[in-house]
Every structure is written in C-alpha cells, then in structure tokens.
Simulated scan of single mutants.
Amino acid sequence: MTSLGVVYRPQLPPERLRPIARAADEAGLDELWLWEDCFLESGIATASAALAWTERLHVGVGLLPVPLRNVALTAMEVATLHRLFPGRVTVGIGHGLQEWMGQAGARVESPVTLLREYATALRALLRGERVSTQGRYVRLDDVALEWPPLAPVPVLAGAVGPRSLRLTGEVADGTVIDARVTPEGLRAALDLVSEGRRESGRTGAWPVVVYVLAATGPGARDRVAAEAERSGPAFQGVGAAGAAEEIAGVVRGLAVAGATTVVLQPTADEPDPEGFVRFAAEQVRPLVPR
C-alpha cells in the first residue's frame, strides 16, 4: 500500500496550520507531515495541534533533530501523542542540519554515534522498558515512562549518507528520505538500508517515507526548478510539476522503487497551501494505487 501525504512547510506561520490541517482532513488526504526545522516551528507542538483539530488525518513528524532534544523528553512527548491519538501519528528522528546544530550550541563530533545511541534508547523507552545507559552522548539512569504507549510505536530515522542509511536499517523501524532522491537513487538507498537490517537480523515490513518537490498550476515547473536550485546541486532534476497525472506518475515511480509513503513537498512560495492539499487528496490520490 502507498500512502500519499503533503508537508506543511514551517515557512508558513503557525497560525496557518489549522485551516490547512482541516482542509487535509476534510478532503481525505492520507497524511500531513510536519518539520521541526530550526528556528521555525516545533514538531511536537504542531503535531499535537493538528491532531486535535482533525478527526481522521494521520500526522507525521519528520524529522526531530536529536542533538536539540534530550531522549527522555522526546520519549515522553511521543508516548503522550500516541496515548492521546492512538494510531494517528508517526515520528521520525535525524541528525539535524549541522550548521543549525552549531548555531544552537548542540553540534556533536559524531552524529552517527549520537543517532545510534538515541534511537536505541528511545525505542526501549517507548517499549516501556526501564533504561540505564552511559553512552558517549546518551546517558540515562534507571529511566522508565510512567505512561508508555499502549501499542508498539515505530521510530523512523532520516538519512542521506551511506553510513546513516545503513544505520536506519540497523536501529530504527523505518527510513525517511528527503526530496533529492530519484527512483534509481531510492533503490540504491534502500540497498544500504537492507544491509543494516541484515546486520542486525531484522525482517518484516519496512516503512519508507520519501519527500518529493511538487507544484501544480501556473508556473509550476518554474517554481519546482527554482526550489531545487535553492536547495543545492543534489536536488537538480528531481521533483514533480504539472497536472495530477504528471505528479501521480512521479509518485507511482517512487512507490515501485520502494516508498510506502510519498509526501508531496510544496514549494516555499506555494500560493494556495489549502488548495494544494485538496488537489493532492482529490486529484492525485485516486491515481495512485493503494
């Protein structure tokens, strides 16, 4: 099954979230994804609000930058969301953009080590375990959640480089990949994820969330091209622009390559965010096999 989502870009002010979340819910969009980009908006606060304002919409947070967040606090927040809104939320974690981590005084020498320690501790806490660990970065002394989730909670992890992609397969429960990937690049990335899964003896279904730059309406191709140009050389030649069938074709290609959720990432200058989520739900979704 392939789910279709849309990103609520944090370049929009927080007060825009409610009408966009409501529009997504009413239109039947599968998922709305949120970012915790520095120094824009909180991922957990926006997720809580979006879930409370909607009835059926699934909300994803991708990603929470782990250098900024104590793992016990993240476990408390994630567990609370799952108790309040069971089955309606997915949370992913990641290294965070290193420049931003430096600005916040949170940059670490080994982001891969931190993510490994963090994901391991977070998953254990969310399983209701009592955790003591003295790692290089993550240190807990007899910590257990009083209100752990009532059902298993997947923790996804985002990655770009080969070491991090392998790590997601080893220590997370799914992988989040940003909008620079083509179907061919996604297959190569998932080969690395599979290496990590094999090393840790992990089998079974594996959620794969992939973002894709997207725009429709007048000037759509120019807006996607400009966004890719601003994002850097790695984003050149990616994205989806045009009518519903053109965008659905890109989504289907990523699904065949291994994506279980494709999240349309509107350009930062999208003129009608509410209209975009309705377009995704009402025109693109019917063209993507479930």
Rank of each mutant, 00 (worst) to 15 (best):
M1K: 12
S3Q: 14
L4W: 11
Y8K: 09
R9H: 13
L12V: 01
R22T: 12
R22I: 10
A23D: 06
E26G: 09
G28T: 02
L34C: 09
W35Q: 15
F39V: 13
F39M: 14
E41P: 02
A45S: 14
A50F: 00
A52S: 14
W53H: 08
W53T: 09
T54N: 05
R56C: 02
V59N: 14
V61R: 07
G62W: 09
P65A: 15
V66Q: 07
L68P: 01
N70C: 08
L73P: 00
A75E: 12
T80H: 04
R83G: 01
T90Y: 11
E99W: 15
W100N: 15
M101G: 00
A104S: 13
A104R: 15
S110I: 04
S110F: 11
S110C: 01
T113W: 02
L114F: 12
E117D: 05
E117V: 07
L122K: 08
R123G: 10
A124F: 10
A124Q: 15
L125F: 01
R127T: 05
G128H: 12
R130Q: 13
T133E: 12
G135V: 03
R136Q: 14
R139W: 00
R139G: 01
L140S: 01
A144I: 10
E146K: 08
P149S: 00
G158T: 03
L165Q: 12
T168P: 04
T168Y: 06
T168F: 05
D173L: 08
T175I: 04
T175P: 07
T175S: 14
V176K: 07
V176A: 10
D178S: 12
T182H: 08
E184F: 02
L186W: 00
L190P: 04
D191S: 12
S194G: 12
R197W: 08
R202I: 06
V208E: 04
V209W: 15
Y211Q: 12
Y211L: 14
V212N: 03
A215W: 00
T216D: 10
T216Y: 10
P218Y: 02
R221G: 02
D222H: 00
V224Q: 03
E227T: 09
S231C: 06
V238P: 01
A241P: 04
A244W: 01
E245K: 08
E246P: 07
E246T: 11
A248I: 08
G249D: 15
V250G: 10
R252Y: 13
R252P: 11
L254T: 04
A255D: 13
V256Q: 15
A257N: 08
A259K: 07
A259H: 05
L264V: 04
Q265H: 11
A268R: 14
D269T: 05
D269A: 09
R278V: 10
R278C: 07
R278E: 08
L287V: 06
P289R: 13
